[in-house]
Nucleic acid binder design. Structure first.
Lengths: 226, 226
DNA sequence: CAGCGTATGATCATCATACAATGTGATCGC
DNA sequence: GCGATCACATTGTATGATGATCATACGCTG
């Protein structure tokens, strides 16, 4: 870090509404607030200790991100994602991740390529420790992937997409055999990257996203059927 | 339109902040508010006749859409899009439109396919009337395309993307020869759709978006160079 | 006159409060 | 039981106040 960065004082003490926004977003992602749950402004005021103004502005941003739904004169609820919508979101996600893979091959530095391979090994290790650990490691893997692609807009859109998909809780349920399958797919991504084959990387990333969606949907179907 | 739709009465008298939001968005898209321009809350209050509360909430949503930038304690300005960012946005757009093309082939009804061909002819006619008319006709073409794909999430994401790209004014500048080129590309899309070839449609859509971006950038470069 | 500190005004950030509009559920009368 | 009516909860909008931050202008000092 150069002297310029080391001396810079964090000039933005994060406005209160941003912190409220972050907290709410986090709570939704972690399913502490479940889809369909009402978000009553007065209660949020009491819980957070900030004014209604700030709460409402945070809710407007969440609404724009698609994480909550506001019904006029009725209130705000954590967004509910139908199976149909989730399918659509997965299609978009697949397209975006395909692009991410391509951009990584085209733009990533050698260090970033090594980091990706290393992230893959971390996922392998985490796979043994259960789904939660694997999920976290996979998030890291994708962090590296998007970082290396160098497209900030892509990263942010994929992020909000990921959050919305996450609303459909059961999607993260894993079917027996899925973790191994998933690992193999990530391996293909790294292989394509190593081979410097952008088309293959795009296809591998896109395929992984699609495949993850499929797995979630069949888990959902089994659930509904059983 | 069926009887259900024709009798439906608009049950939600659009909250004031939504109308403010729509108006501001529109104004930004039409470049009545130019990038970098400050949006002073007090002035907006006077212009619109609504309270600061509503104005601020609308600004928060615009910020989440990426159309304005809010600097804490300093104010809100219409977002400025750098050339680098625009390049990134175009990459994403290209990926999304590729998906749109594929989905159209897979899901569009015969009527929608006819509508697409018809929209293409409308673009051809409009091309003679100048860039503005052609732009509008092209928007219609894309409306049909996204509609036929049946993916609402994709449509909405592509929409906000389009809006953000639009912020870089000069991108819509046309180079000599570009309109004809553009028409040819749209023709390829329709051809692929007619042939029922999803891969080709995806490639054609993606290529058109990419090509449009390229044209904009070279126009930009010439401008900077001259 | 260059550099520094201060005064000043503009603007935003947050809060408290108020009231209207709307939706919801309970109560009452039949 | 059933519909009308009323009370309550909640959101939508407005208003005024206070403090923080930033940009600018101004004047002082060496």
């Amino acid at each position: 870090m150069g002297i310029a960065e080391s001396l810079r004082v964090e000039r933005a003490p994060a406005p209160i509404r941003s912190r409220v926004l972050d907290n709410l977003r986090q709570a939704i992602l972690e399913h502490k607030l479940v889809p369909g749950q009402r978000l009553i402004e007065r209660e949020l005021v009491e819980l957070t200790g900030v004014s209604r103004t700030s709460i409402r502005e945070a809710l407007r941003e969440l609404a724009a991100e698609g994480l909550v739904t506001t019904i006029p004169n009725k209130g705000t609820v954590v967004a509910e994602v139908s199976v149909k919508e989730a399918r659509q979101l997965y299609q978009v996600r697949s397209a975006l991740e395909g692009l991410a893979g391509r951009l990584f091959v085209e733009n990533a530095s050698p260090a970033q390529r090594r980091a990706l391979a290393s992230a893959l090994r971390a996922v392998e290790r985490a796979a043994a420790k259960g789904p939660a650990a694997m999920l976290a490691a996979k998030d890291k893997f994708y962090d590296v992937l998007f970082e290396g692609g160098g497209n900030e807009a892509l990263r942010s859109m994929a992020g909000t997409l990921h959050a919305r998909i996450n609303l459909l809780r059961s999607m993260s349920l894993s079917r027996p055999g899925r973790p191994a399958e998933s690992l193999a797919e990530l391996g293909e991504i790294v292989a394509a990257v190593t081979a410097n084959d952008a088309d293959a990387a795009a296809k591998a990333c896109s395929h992984h996203a699609e495949s993850a969606g499929m797995a979630g949907f069949s888990a959902l179907a089994e659930q509904a059927g059983g």
